[in-house]
Nucleic acid binder design. Structure first.
Lengths: 200, 200
DNA sequence: GAGGTGCTGCACTCACCGGTTTACTATTGC
DNA sequence: GCAATAGTAAACCGGTGAGTGCAGCACCTC
């Protein structure tokens, strides 16, 4: 009788394989990652990887889906807590910067930019579920602020872009190339500039 | 007697090899590029590549140096023509966006982000000679504006970051993932927001 | 025009890597 | 406890790609 897909051994294997694979892919990229090493680090036979996951490409997709899921959840949580007044944007700026500069998130960005040619669907999905969702959430909040006269943002999508990139554009861009940590206070300063530009 | 390095055959080979290699590296990245294909496209024997350039890594470095040189020259030229009044920033914004969104420049960015782990020195060099120089030029201009009371920019470095990423942050970020062309008018709108935030 | 040098084309080595096979052991569900 | 299934270890296959050696032709320098 088939132990079928509820076999705890399978679940355990899948978990440890995906964890090791995430480590490798995020560090060295898709092509340079090698299945033997992933198997060794997961302390799992290479055969198990092919039984449980299917192959290198599927493994990559699984890893991206998992990391993207948790990253998107964090980003969503950090953005949704918009309160009544635009002044809370200063705190939001710092939370957002912290999430986006988390090492895993940065590496996922690098990875997907690097493989955008090979996996355009993944790059697009990332963009929609990550930055895209943050933008639409911000935009909705700004539309609300605008309606209540708290912010002069006739084009809330544009305002959302401006907020996001004032807050973390420069440091994010730099981090993509050099691993340097963001300068402290930069996020808050960006939010302040935003308020100067968009205060009614 | 040695024909030495002034032999026109060598110069010609080097030129055609670098051109073909740039094409390949910018399109598929470092690892996926393959020397046989580059040789074929350059209509040159593979042996010639190893004689003239030395190897795949050196070829990559040559290509990056060349593309980076021309890109930096363009970016510098587009930024330096700052006139007396902050109003010219609207035009500057559009010029800057055009340069940065040029396909070659975008692909160089993707390439260097992708290989930042393997070639950290190249990534750093790019950042200093490209975005870095643009920033310092902008910053110097803003300091001047500030001194003459034309702009309220007590921290000109910060103002330069804000200007650059208001103008092209969102579209550049998107372009790294999806190849989508920037929305028209976005650059100008960014410059306008900048002026609202920094007008004295 | 003579001698040296570069280019070619091709075969070749060597290493790596994704994926499979085999022969065996350990768990699991019933 | 007993099939059935998952896992292990190691060898193996097929393909690919960086880099080399070499022999002969073409071109450049003087």
């Amino acid at each position: 009788m088939p132990a079928s897909s509820t076999d705890p051994r399978v679940a355990r294997s899948r978990a440890v394989i995906t964890a090791a694979a995430a480590e490798h892919f995020l560090r060295v990229g898709y092509l340079a990652a090698n299945v033997d090493e992933i198997a060794a680090e997961a302390r799992v036979s290479k055969r198990t990887i092919y039984n449980v996951v299917g192959g290198k490409e599927q493994l990559f997709r699984d890893v991206v889906a998992e990391v993207l899921g948790t990253a998107a959840a964090f980003a969503g949580a950090a953005t949704r807590e918009l309160a009544d007044t635009p002044e809370t944007l200063l705190d939001l700026a710092e939370r957002l910067a912290a999430v986006v500069h988390a090492p895993r998130v940065l590496r996922l960005r690098r990875l997907l930019i690097a493989e955008a040619g090979r996996f355009p669907d993944l790059a697009r999905e990332y963009y929609e579920r990550g930055p895209g969702r943050v933008m639409t959430t911000l935009s909705a909040a700004f539309r609300d602020y605008h309606g209540r006269g708290l912010l002069a943002a006739p084009d809330p999508d544009l305002a959302a872009e401006h907020f996001a990139f004032l807050v973390l554009g420069a440091s994010l861009d730099r981090a993509l190339f050099t691993d340097e940590p963001p300068q402290p206070g930069r996020a808050r300063a960006g939010a302040e500039a935003f308020l100067r530009a968009y205060r009614p």
